[in-house]
């Protein structure tokens, strides 16, 4: 399966009436994860987060594609 670049956030069983809500739910949770952390601590949390999600995805072709896109323009 290629890297999914379409909106893909959802919570099973939850009904959404506005298209932006699931993405905003995720984004808030992401920012909340970093609350009260120093920049260094946040960098560590981000690194661990990438590793956890990468393992969950597992598919190397998807991960290579994501890593390539993430580097673009930086």
């Amino acid at each position: 399966m290629p890297l999914n670049l379409k909106p893909n956030f959802a919570e099973p069983g939850k009904r959404y009436f506005r298209a932006y809500t699931p993405g905003d739910d995720f984004y808030e949770a992401l920012i909340e994860t970093h609350r009260d952390l120093s920049d260094e601590q946040s960098a560590m949390v981000n690194a661990k987060l990438v590793l956890l999600l990468a393992n969950h995805i597992g598919d190397m072709s998807v991960l290579r594609e994501a890593m390539k896109l993430a580097r673009e323009g930086v």
Binding site: N4, L5, K6, P7, N8, R18, A19, Y20, G23, D24, F26, Y27, L30, I31, H34, L37, D39, S42, A43, N46, L69, G73
Partner: peptide, 29 residues
């Protein structure tokens, strides 16, 4: 925070090309 700003700018940078990031751009709902 600096991290929050980095995420925000990453969303905006990805938004140009990728639909999933456009859905996260929040200038007011």
């Amino acid at each position: 925070s600096k991290t929050s700003l980095t995420f925000r700018n990453a969303v905006l940078a990805l938004a140009r090309d990728h639909a999933f990031a456009r859905a996260l751009v929040n200038s007011g709902r």
